[in-house]
């Protein structure tokens, strides 16, 4: 949910309208959770869940095979998976673009803990341009103060630069 929240704040900083919301059944830490983000050039009124996403971000690759992470993702879409494996190695059968990125590794390098929100956002920004890295900065600073903010910003920019270098 933190990722979705930060995306919504960043998109707004980019001059767009945004909406982020969780799907809550009865969650507890460690259980699979879903969160949704809409970004648009006009105010967003639609309140339903997102069934045909343009992008899927999968923070925990162990969910592959347990949850249908590709559900509703079209051929023109993209799934970004937090994994050190190559896209063809993670067992996703889809015509959509599959991208892997070692967000946990980056998070451990920069934050010292395996919390991947900001690293995966940096990677997503570099891959899609849907939100700019400049907009991520105020979003992260709003959410995290002091040293934690600096570290998370480092996680995002490190991820961003690594993806940029690989493209």
């Amino acid at each position: 949910m933190i990722t979705a929240e930060l995306f919504a704040i960043a998109a707004f900083a980019d001059g767009k309208y945004s909406q982020a919301f969780p799907y809550f059944g009865g969650e507890r830490r460690g259980a699979p959770v879903q969160a949704f983000v809409r970004i648009d050039d006009r105010p967003i009124r639609l309140r339903s869940k997102i069934y045909n996403p343009d992008y899927v971000i999968l923070q925990d690759p162990s969910l592959i095979g347990i949850v249908d992470v590709l559900q509703g993702l079209g051929e023109d879409g993209m799934i970004l998976v937090n994994s050190e494996l190559l896209p063809e190695e993670i067992g996703l059968d889809t015509k959509a673009r599959v991208v892997t990125f070692p967000a946990t590794k980056i998070a451990l390098e920069t934050l010292g803990v395996p919390i991947t929100n900001t690293a995966i956002m940096g990677a997503f920004s570099a891959l899609t341009g849907e939100i700019t890295i400049d907009a991520l900065k105020p979003a992260i600073e709003e959410k995290f103060t002091g040293e934690l903010g600096e570290k998370n910003l480092l996680a995002a920019t490190t991820a961003y630069e690594r993806v940029r270098a690989s493209l």
Binding site: A8, I9, F12, S18, Q19, A20, F21, P22, I44
Partner: peptide, 10 residues
């Protein structure tokens, strides 16, 4: 609940 209370929007 959730749809408004836990949604981030402008």
């Amino acid at each position: 609940g959730w749809t408004i209370s836990h949604t981030f929007e402008p």
